[in-house]
Amino acid sequence: MTNLGSATFVAEPGAIDGGGSTMCAIASDGNVYCWGGNGELLGSPQAVVDEPTPIANPTGQRLVQVSVGQHHACAVSDSGDAYCWGDHTYGQLGSFGATEDVAELQAVATQSLDPGEVFVEVACGDRHTCASTSQNRVFCWGDNSNDQLAVPDVASTTSVPRVIDSPVWGRTATLTQLDASMKASCAVVDATPVSTHTIYCWGRNTSGKLGALDPGHVLTEPLEVEPAANAANVEFRRVSTNFNHTCAVADDGQIYCWGRKEHKLGTVFPSISGSDIPHPDRPIDGGRQYLDVAVGTNHSCGVSVANEVFCWGHNENYRLGVSGPDTPTPQQVVFPSR
């Protein structure tokens, strides 16, 4: 039994997301509903909420996209406003009036935006938030201890959205997707005049997950993820990053993963020594084409063009959707018949 009433969940990209121990989804009534084990996000003192619970929305705005971090979440409305709720310890809600914990939608400050500029997509990391706008700019706020905001004059934290001053995008490039994770952020950019889908990342390069040669190094500005020689001509259209690995869907539908090996990359690399793969090198096993990919702390899942779900990596708590050991080989998740 849920609290949805007559509403139903929306089957659209960006309408559902999970972070930490919480899931949130947008329903047909334009509100966001959350469930799981994080009271800061659920507006409830209970440790666990076992059914979708509406987040207070005093604005009445219809929400169209949601992103969930470790202890906070944000959403974008159909009019281009951004709202956040949850933990505000590091300024990750982007709101001047917010206290440490907020149980209802708080408007993200917009004084840094140009007239007519609105938010398009929001991405929540562990303790920071980034958002793209209608003018192909990226604003970030919250914790900057690992340069995950890519704003050099913010030493620690800020609750004011700050624009990333980067030459790799702007009014002549299109930001097609944004993602944030623990201590890092990534964006897919469609550059013009020649259409090239490229990933740029910034923040802490744990295990080489940001596509840079020096694992653990901090990238203070957005840098292009450069594929290895095996994937020299590959372009990407979707990206997902987490604690120590990243996966992306290429234009041909194949998924590439890089970062910490440990069964997380969807294939094995017998000819490459060491524990990290710092660049997109080879696609995951199976030869399938995918529409999207989502990366967890130690596992990943992809949705194929045949609307099938495959997962790989660590299988603690059955996170791969099947019984069995940890595996680098994508395993199909079989849904019960209805």
Rank of each mutant, 00 (worst) to 15 (best):
D251Y: 09
V249M: 07
T220F: 13
P280Q: 12
R282V: 05
D281Y: 07
K261F: 12
Q254W: 09
H245N: 09
P270N: 08
C247H: 05
G259V: 01
K264P: 01
K264C: 06
I277E: 03
Y256V: 03
G216W: 10
P222N: 09
D251F: 04
T220K: 15
R260W: 14
D281W: 14
D285Q: 04
G286N: 04
H245M: 08
A231S: 04
P280Y: 15
R260Y: 14
R282W: 12
N242K: 12
D281Q: 12
D214W: 13
R282E: 04
D251T: 08
G216P: 00
Q254D: 06
V268S: 15
A250N: 08
E226F: 10
H279Q: 07
D276L: 03
F236A: 03
N233L: 05
P270Q: 10
V234I: 11
T267F: 04
A232K: 11
S273C: 07
R260F: 13
R237L: 12
I255L: 13
G259P: 02
P283W: 11
D281A: 06
G253L: 03
N233E: 13
H217I: 15
H245W: 05
E235W: 12
I277N: 01
I284C: 01
G253S: 09
G286P: 00
H279K: 10
L223R: 14
E226G: 08
P283C: 09
T267R: 12
D214T: 08
Q254V: 02
P227A: 10
E221Y: 00
N230D: 15
F243G: 14
V249L: 11
A228E: 07
T241C: 09
G253V: 09
A231H: 05
E224V: 09
A231V: 04
Q254H: 08
I277A: 03
V234M: 12
I284W: 02
N242G: 07
